[in-house]
Amino acid sequence: MDTLDLIDRKIVAELMRDATLPVSQIADKVGLSQTPCWKRIQKLQEQGVLTARVALADPDKLGFGLTIFVGIEAPDHSADWREAFAKVTRDMPQIMEIYRMAGEMDYLLRIAVPDMAAFDTLYKRLTDAIPIKNVTSHFAMERIKFTTAYPVNTSAKP
């Protein structure tokens, strides 16, 4: 894929800030007319730069007041275990994100649940479904900063 030019970066930055903006407003902000701006947005989607447009919700107001970061140490690093782990976790919507890591833990999960009882149920379901060498849970007390927008360079200078 080609490197994004300044206008594409500005479009992406605007959409990450607010995906509900009409194309006309995005076009004004990035210095294009509406049709070329819409064509660039479509191209960014086709290239996979823009992967989805979603609404962000407050987890507390939806009843998901407990966020847990769980470190998983795998019993082995075989393709079979990785595939089984992916299959099991794919079917658990409370697991919001999964990262394969380098270092002391093999996987890091971000989990959102209503309370400790719900986490305990998920924990048992996960550990009963697949062998795991070690599980370390860290409970978030406060979310101080949260963003889904990457710090895209929107200046003309590299």
Rank of each mutant, 00 (worst) to 15 (best):
T147G: 07
K145W: 11
V30T: 09
L122R: 07
P59A: 14
I132S: 02
K87G: 08
V88A: 04
L56A: 13
A74K: 01
L32C: 15
S24R: 10
A74V: 08
H77Q: 09
I68F: 06
G63V: 01
F69W: 14
E46L: 01
I111D: 05
L66S: 04
K133Y: 15
I111T: 05
N153I: 02
A13T: 08
L56N: 02
W38S: 06
G103D: 12
H77M: 05
P93R: 03
G103P: 05
R17A: 14
A13K: 08
E104D: 13
D2Q: 05
S155T: 07
P22F: 12
D60N: 06
R9V: 01
H138M: 15
L15E: 14
V30N: 02
L108T: 11
T51V: 02
A27W: 08
A27Y: 06
T35M: 07
V54D: 10
G65D: 06
H138W: 14
H138F: 06
I132V: 12
T148Q: 13
T3N: 09
D18P: 00
T51H: 13
I111W: 12
Q34G: 04
A86M: 12
E142R: 06
A19Y: 04
P22M: 01
M92K: 09
V54M: 08
F85S: 00
L4K: 15
K43P: 13
K43Y: 10
F119W: 08
T148H: 13
S33K: 13
L6H: 02
A19R: 00
W81L: 00
D115S: 04
R40S: 02
Y99E: 00
L66N: 08
T127F: 15
H138E: 09
N134A: 07
R17G: 14
P59R: 10
M116R: 11
E104V: 11
P151M: 11
P59Y: 03
I130F: 04
T20L: 09
Y150I: 07
A79D: 05
A118K: 11
P151L: 03
R53A: 05
L122F: 05
M141K: 08
D2N: 12
R53P: 11
I11H: 12
V70M: 10
A55I: 08
F119G: 00
Q94H: 12
P22I: 02
K124Q: 08
A156R: 15
A86Y: 11
Q47M: 06
A57R: 04
W38R: 09
L4H: 14
W38C: 01
V23C: 05
L126W: 09
L66E: 09
D106P: 00
Y99D: 00
D60T: 10
V23L: 05
V135L: 04
H138R: 04
K39V: 12
F119P: 00
V49K: 02
L66D: 04
P75A: 15
T3L: 03
T89C: 03
G48K: 01
K157I: 02
Y123F: 10
H77F: 11
G71H: 10
V113A: 04
